[in-house]
Structures are given as C-alpha cells and as structure tokens.
Write a protein that binds this DNA or RNA. Structure first.
Length: 833
DNA sequence: TTATACTGCAA
DNA sequence: TATTGCAGTATAA
C-alpha cells in the first residue's frame, strides 16, 4: 500500500480528527482601541455605552451617534432614531423600554460640523466595546441597524461570508449566533429609510417581521457538533455495505470532491464521495484518493456506486450541473433519479445576489463554517485545470465531504418545510428542478467547434492587431506622450493613459462621463473624435475583444467541443445566465466582422446541421399576455408592426424604434432620455416628436400602463412582484425593476418550460438531435438531418400550442422563427427557410 | 492575491 | 430613472 496513510495509521489518526476551526468574533483586535481611533477626544459624549431598559431582551446595535445623540448622550434620538421610534410604536413596541441601544462606533464621527459614516478603522477600534455589552447583557436577539453594524458584527467570519457584507445581502435574515448564544437580525438603518422614502415600506415591513420573532418562543440554540454526525471509512466491506444501504433509502443527498471543476479535460477524477440518507447522519469515503484501494477494490466500489446512481433512491444535490455531469462522465449513468437541487431552490426562496452557495446557506441557517483546512487544496494550481485535492489530508477531506453531504440533506429538509409555508412557490421549484436537468444535459453534450477555422481566424486577427499596435506606438501622439511620461502609452488603459493622452495632451474635449464621473473613452466618444488615432484604437479594441473573449475560449475546446454552463441560480429576474469557459449568450451578432469571426467557429457535429428556433417578438407577446391590453391583443392578432408604426411617427429606423423607443418605454425610460439617446443618430429629431410618440404609445396601450402601475401598487402592499409559476422577486425594488422583472423573467420561463417538454419527447423517442445551447428566448439545435422535419414539428407544437393550453395566463399565441445551416454548416451561415 | 472600474457583448 | 447577465484588462491596495 502506497499513499498518504496506511489504513492502520488512518484509523489511528481518526481518533484525534482535525477540528474544524471557527474564528472567534469576540477577541479584541490586536493593538486597536480608543487610542488608535481618537474620536473620543473631539466629542461631547465620548465612549457612549448603552441606554434603554431592554425589557424584551433585545439589543439594537446601530451605526454611531449623530449630532443629537452626541449632545444628549443617548442613542437614537435624532431624526433617524425618531423614525425608528415611531415605526416601533406602530407595532406596539417602545424603543427605550423594550430594547437596549448601542452603536458599533461609540463616539460621533464628524467632518467639519457634519455627521459622517465611521471609517473601517474606527469600526475595528471600537469593536471590543459592543462585544463587552453583548457579553454582559446576554440579549436573546440583536438587531443590526444598517451596513456598518453588519460589517462590524460579521467581519471575522469566513471568506464566503466576508466577501459581501452589504445590507441588501443580510437584511431580513435571522441568523443564529453560537458565539454569543443569541440570534441576529439585520435591518436597513432607519436613516436610509428617512433619506429614501421609497425604502420606508420595506423598512417597516422588515421591522415588523423582526419584532414578530420576539414574541415567538426562542429558537433552540443549535447543536454545533455537526462533525460527530459525519462518519467515514476506508474499510472496503464497510464502504460497499453503506452504498448498498443507500440504494434502499428514499432520499439521499450526494456530494463529490473532485480534482477540478469539470470532468471534461483528461485525467480528471472524483477524489472522494459523501452521501447522507437522513438529516442527522452522513457517510464519506475516498474514491480515487491515492493509496487507499487496490485496482480491484476500486472497480467494485465504482460498480456499486453506479448501481446506487441507477437505483430509485431520490438524489439530492447542491448543484445538479456538478454532480450530474461528473456522474455521467465517471460512472456513465444517464437516467438517474435526480430529485432536487438545493441551489436552485435556494434561489427561488431568496433570489438575492451571492446567496446560494452551500457555505452561505449553511452559515445563515446554522451559523456553522467549515472547510478551512481543505480550502488551499481546492484552489486550482497555476496554469492547470487541476487542484490539489489528492494531496489534502484524508481525514480532513472526508470530514469536509461528509459535512457537505450532511448540510445538503439538512438544507433539503429545511426547504421542504419552507415550501409547505410558501405553497405558491411549489410550481416554480418543480419547473427549476426539471429545468436544471435540461441545462446540465446541454452542458454535458457541449457545442461543437471548428478548431482549425478558429486557429486561422485567430492568426489573421492577431496579425492585424499587432500591425495596428505598432502603427499606434510609432505615431506622433504616442511620441508626445512619451516625451512627457518617459514611456509609451498603453492604448488599453481606459482610466489612465488614454484619457491623459486624449484630453490632457491632445486637448480634445471630453464629451461623456463614466459612472464614477471620470472622462469616458468608450466607443461612442472615440467615434465622435473620428481621427486616425481613435479609429485605430477602436479597431484594435474590437480585434482584441474578438480574440481574447471569444476565440480564446473556443481555442480551449476539448475534442472540438466547449461546455459552457447554463445557470438557473443567478439572475434575479429568474432568467438563465451562461458562463465558464464562455458566456454563450453574448456571442457577437450585430457587428458583421465580429459575427463572422466568432459564429463561423460554432458548427454542427459531423453529418448534422445546426438549427435555431426563436420565439418571435417574444417580450411584446409576454407583455400582452401579462397585461391583457385590448389594443395590444388586437394589434398582435392583426399583425400590426408596432415598431414600424412608431418608427414612421418619429422618422427613425425600425431597429431604433424597437430598441431605443418601444422597449425603453416599456422598461421605464421616458421621452427625454430616449430623445437624448436618439439625437446623435438623428440630429434633426425634435424632443416634442418623441414626447408625442410617447403619449401615443401609452394612449394606445393604456392597459399595459395600468398593469405596470398596478404591479407597483401590489409591490407596495406585499413587498414582492409575482410571476407565472409562482416565482416571486422580493426585496427593495425600484420602479423600473418592478416593470422589467415579470416580463424578462416570464419570457425566459416560457422557453424553459418548452425545453423541458421537448426533452421529454426527445428522450421517449430517442432522438439523435439535441439542444446544445439556449439564449433567453431561443434554442440552438444540433440536428440529425433525418430528424429535421420532426424536430421542427414537435417544437412548434410545444412552443405554440401546448404551452398555451397548459399555461392559461398566455392569451395570445407565441410564434416561432427557425433558421438552419447546411449539413456540416456553421452558426454564421444559418438561413431562414 | 483581491477588489473595483471601465469597456463591450447578448437578450 | 430601460433591465438582466459574463468576461477581459487595467489599476490600486
């Protein structure tokens, strides 16, 4: 036996197994205190500690004293404090009687005479002070008011938690805290609601939700000994028996630890496997970990696991893409009983950003963090597709793997409980649990690439790019720059060298600002300057974009295929997204050069042809079905070209009418902003013309407007926007997001529903053709020529007829638009038939 | 190394 | 008050 441990040694080591280190939050930060901060020297009430009677055993931890607080020496007496006081009174709570109050920074920070937010240093220096307060008062609950309080409280948590401590990520969560034996609820700071009246309803709703917890019986503080619920083994017979038992269980969560993110490149392996068949127990064992199994043993384990995968046990995973694709690749199992993806369900239950990772979910439900010892081994080795999981200490690896499986199982149970409470989400969960299987099927099948064509194009563009770069560097402008700065300018430096060259040295007039208020050098700016220099810079930019973003990803294909992911757990509107190694949803289309260079490389598999089917004019039709506007129904039924109608009215192109006017209006823009965007393209256009068109649009489609305004009213009452299949978008939303979400989201959900139904038939009839990609309202097909007509017929039936029958909210038929390539053709050559 | 800004591509 | 995404490069801490 070669390897890290012999079996005997391993078992011995298990006795003193690695402890999962959790950083303590209560230690004072070394060398940081009042001396390093110094705020106390300047203020009237230095080092304010705590006020309030705290009858409800709840501590309000706010940001810092303001002017009024400093003068009176009492927390939360200024404008924001009064707003909080009033909001609590409406809920029959008294701020001073029921709560204790303190701040994460105890002295008032000022700038001149004005209040300012505390700096990170001040927050660190003052941290030990609220810690003492918490330890003394032992509150049942802590309310964190605002982002600074969240920062101070969670700043020493693990990386996945620390990476984003914004209030929008933490608000309206109740997180158990084991360190202080309490529960933590984060809320917007009342001053934020005072400054932004639109936020006030959300603030009040959150507060009501928060104080409701105080009436409840206190949650039992959780058992932290999750490690003892994990067992592992390297004994062959035991592993085999456990897998056999798992096959007989009803629900089993599974998790793989692997040598890389994806299995497609050569020699990728599953290092260990964990599974859990009940909420308080999980089991893990090494798989391709070196030196544990003989070849024969490994083969038998592999067989046994394949039998488990194909057993009726319902499999639960925290990322279907990951476990399914690895299962197929390593075990060749195709038709498994995948039941539940806790990641997409987490997204449906709460669609916030950076929310669905297992680390974060475990933290927010159990305040448990683990895996620090394994983290360095998970990182991929520089310039390689491999991590170092095989070198990780076996006991740590197995513990980590077992905990992942355990928490996936616990999360599943929690989500099921939650869905009993939120029954309206059940259809959404069903749709995504099915949908995610179709997404991972696409990902596994992959997209064929013509590598030779890609190499040729890339070389050609590289040559042109190098030539132009040379020309730029030899030009007089570069020379001028060099005289001043003793170096050549970097023409790709959009925030430094290029603005310096254009606006300082060459003294061109800046015409556009960036988001952060600097002088922009984007395409429109350089186009307007229209000199040899700027035109060459633009050309180089374009070439580099094509090469570095698209062709380089295609060149990295494996056996002439790329396998981009299609994700369902990221977009807040419940659209899909695509990533890794390439976002397949933004391959160039408008620019002819870029389109040809990139789309010529995407081809059918040998002997097949590519097909692409779009829902035609989809978002307008979705708006129509959701709003049920009478005139829009009529116009669509009569085939009125809405975009042309307004194009003629304003004397602009149909293209601009559609993209700059109709969609912009529907998504919340107004005539003035639209006029400003159109003016550079149409210098003779009058503001009043656009204004009149706007009036005409909303007169004609007043039903759409009323539907939109209704959405806003409903949102104000309920705090969320409803969508078909029960999806909900929650949290603080601006008006335009309320308008946009149900349209954008529902449009994609129609596609997803269609993909699921089509795949059912594809499987049943064993088609050789496959969906290989998906772009919001279209599918890309790799089609066997013999099946072409049948695929078209079935898709049309499902996308036009069935979808309307099964989903009564759709009241106007969708239309499909097809394009096909020749046999062995490319995505660029596709034509309408 | 890690986080942020800018740019540019799609629907 | 148009929205939803991903990725490459530059730059600063």
């Amino acid at each position: 036996m070669i390897g890290f441990f012999s079996k005997k040694e391993f078992i011995k080591n298990k006795e003193n197994s690695l402890s999962i280190i959790r950083k303590t939050a209560s230690e004072p930060i070394e060398n940081l205190g009042c001396e390093q901060c110094g705020l106390w020297k300047e203020v009237k009430s230095p080092k304010m500690m705590v006020t309030g009677k705290g009858l409800r055993k709840t501590l309000i931890l706010a940001e810092c004293p303001g002017k009024s607080e400093d003068e009176q020496g009492i927390q939360l007496v200024g404008q924001a404090g009064q707003a909080l006081r009033k909001a609590l009174e409406e809920l029959n709570f008294d701020l001073d009687r029921d709560f204790w109050k303190t701040n994460v920074v105890a002295c008032r920070p000022t700038e001149g005479e004005k209040n300012r937010t505390p700096t990170d240093l001040e927050i660190k220096c003052c941290r030990h002070k609220w810690v003492v307060v918490v330890k003394e008062l032992k509150p049942d609950f802590i309310f964190l008011m605002g982002e600074k309080a969240v920062k101070s409280f969670f700043m020493f948590k693990g990386k996945k938690i620390r990476e984003d401590l914004s209030i929008s990520r933490f608000r309206k969560l109740c997180i158990p805290d084991l360190e202080f034996n309490t529960q933590v609820i984060s809320l917007y700071h009342p001053s934020y609601a005072v400054r932004n009246p639109d936020v006030l309803p959300t603030f009040k709703r959150d507060l009501k939700w928060a104080v409701n917890h105080l009436g409840n019986k206190r949650k039992q503080i959780l058992n932290t000994d999750f490690e003892s619920q994990v067992s592992s083994s390297t004994i062959f017979e035991e592993v085999m028996q456990r897998i056999k038992d798992a096959s007989k269980s009803e629900y089993v969560s599974i998790d793989y630890e692997t040598t890389g993110l994806r299995p497609f490149k050569e020699n990728q392996e599953i290092v260990s496997i964990g599974f859990s068949h009940c909420p308080n127990e999980s089991f893990s064992f090494p798989f391709c970990y070196p030196g544990i199994w003989t070849e024969e043993e490994l083969k038998l384990i592999k067989n046994q696991w394949t039998i488990f995968l194909e057993s009726p046990a319902k499999k639960i995973v925290h990322s279907h893409q990951m476990e399914n694709i690895w299962s197929r690749h390593i075990f060749g199992s195709w038709e498994n009983e995948w039941y539940w993806d806790t990641m997409v369900v987490a997204h449906i239950l709460d669609e916030r950003d950076k929310f669905t990772s297992l680390d974060f979910q475990v933290f927010l439900h159990w305040e448990f963090e683990y895996g620090e010892e394994i983290e360095p081994f998970k990182r991929s080795v520089l310039n390689s597709n491999f991590n170092r999981m095989k070198e990780a200490p076996l006991d740590g690896l197995l513990k980590y793997n077992g905990l992942d499986a355990l928490f996936t199982r616990k999360l599943f149970d929690l989500q099921q409980e939650e869905l009993i409470k939120q029954e309206s989400l059940v259809p959404a969960v069903a749709l995504f649990n099915e949908g995610v299987k179709c997404m991972s099927e696409m990902e596994y099948i992959g997209i064929p690439i013509d590598s030779d064509c890609c190499k040729q194009t890339d070389s050609r563009l590289a040559l042109e790019s190098a030539m132009l770069k040379n020309k730029l560097e030899k030009g007089e402008e570069a020379n001028l720059f060099q005289k001043i700065h003793q170096k050549l300018p970097n023409f790709n430096s959009n925030s430094k060298d290029l603005p310096e060259l254009l606006f300082k040295i060459l003294k061109y007039k800046p015409v556009k600002k960036t988001i952060k208020g600097k002088d922009s050098v984007d395409e429109s700016v350089l186009q307007e300057l229209n000199t040899d220099l700027t035109n060459n810079i633009l050309r180089v930019r374009k070439l580099n974009k094509i090469r570095n973003t698209y062709l380089s990803a295609f060149l990295d294909s494996i056996e002439n295929k790329i396998h981009p992911s299609f994700n369902l757990h990221l977009a807040r509107s419940f659209r899909s997204s695509s990533s890794n190694p390439i976002n397949f949803q933004n391959i160039p289309k408008k620019d002819k050069d870029a389109q040809k260079a990139t789309r010529s490389v995407v081809v059918s598999s040998p002997g097949n042809l590519l097909g692409e089917v779009d829902f035609g004019g989809h978002e307008v039709r979705v708006v129509c079905s959701l709003s049920k506007d009478k005139n829009l129904i009529k116009d669509l039924q009569n085939g009125v070209d809405i975009h042309s109608l307004f194009a003629e009215m304003m004397g602009i192109s149909r293209f601009d009418s559609k993209n700059q006017f109709v969609f912009a209006e529907i998504y919340g823009s107004n005539y003035f902003a639209i006029f400003k965007n159109l003016l550079p393209l149409y210098p003779k256009l009058k503001e009043n013309t656009v204004k009149k068109a706007e009036e005409e649009l909303w007169k004609r489609y007043s039903g759409v407007r009323n539907w939109q305004l209704n959405l806003v009213e409903k949102y104000k009452k309920t705090g969320h926007v409803d969508m078909p299949w029960g999806f909900k978008r929650r949290g603080y939303l601006e008006r335009n997001k309320i308008f946009n979400t149900p349209v954008q989201g529902s449009a994609f959900l129609c596609l997803l529903w269609s993909i699921i139904e089509i795949n059912k038939i594809k499987k049943k009839e064993k088609w050789k053709s496959s969906i290989i990609g998906q772009i919001h309202d279209s599918m890309l097909w790799d089609i066997n020529p013999n099946e072409k007509d049948h695929v078209l017929k079935v898709c049309n039936k499902i996308m036009v007829e069935d979808i309307m029958k099964e989903n009564p909210w759709i009241i106007i038929p969708f239309i499909t638009e097809w394009k096909f390539s020749d046999i062995n053709g490319s995505w660029f050559e596709m034509k309408n038939e």
